[in-house]
Amino acid sequence: MFLLAGDVQIDPTEHVRDVVLLKIGEVPIVTMHMVTLIAVTVVFLLVMMKAAKAIATGPESEGNDRYMTRGRLGQIIETMVVYLRDEMLAPVLGARDTKRYLPYLMTLFFFVLFQNLFGMIPLADILHLFGVHQTPIGGTATANIMVTGALAVLSFFMIELHGFREQGLKGWLLHNCGGLVPGPVYLLPIALLVFVVELAGHLIKPTALAIRLFANMFAGHTLMAVLLSFGLVAHHGGMGLLGIGTISVISGAAAVMVMFLELFVAFLQAFIFMFLTAVFLSLMSHHEQEHEHTPPEPALEPASA
């Protein structure tokens, strides 16, 4: 899709799509999203290490202050972790599975969040202003369907492993028959159909995860690029300075508003990816059928000393 301004075409997806940085023959070896993934992950790990140091219990010599989280970064990370753990994951997964999957789910959340947030920094565009037209790092890795697909594949394996672990092979098979087996023989064809649908559901769920994250990030950045390119389109379209200025101001203001929306979407999509993984995990727990008739599990208790 291109914006056609006079005889100039502007591709708004240019800032969102991956860039091949290194090729051997016709085979791309290094792309911008790969470098971005690695670089942002390094930053992510450094930030999490700093946060862990701030949150960890201090030495006894500090008295009661050793329980305090030091620094705003640690407090922000802690607030998010505690909220997601106590308010979102524990009611869905229960105390035991929350403890078991908290590291994976939190890693998933912060990994996606960091990639999303980094994508909001117009690094390539800033460098472009300084004459650097090709940067090895930039863009939004989570706006790449292959990246979100890889994360979804990991979640898929995590969900299925949890299902086998909780229910065993037989329980897993029965679970996928929708409760029709054991049952009347005449329901066997329906049970088979349900089994096929359930199997498809196992694949559709992570696929939906991947597409949802990719589509949101890609669409948001594309919308922003479209808004910001209106001025350029006006320029190439031969409009006067007043017209270009007016269009630029209006489209720039709209882009700023969309930027705030994108900031929210960055958090929201990271949360949705993590939370839906948790929901799918809970659906594979062997006590799924009893959930409707039993009270929720008690709130998460801290690990015994």
Partner: peptide, 15 residues
């Protein structure tokens, strides 16, 4: 993170 970070954070929160 599983080895170096989450245990510290989780222990800190639990403590």
């Amino acid at each position: 993170l599983y080895v170096m970070v989450w245990p510290k954070i989780i222990k800190g929160l639990d403590d």
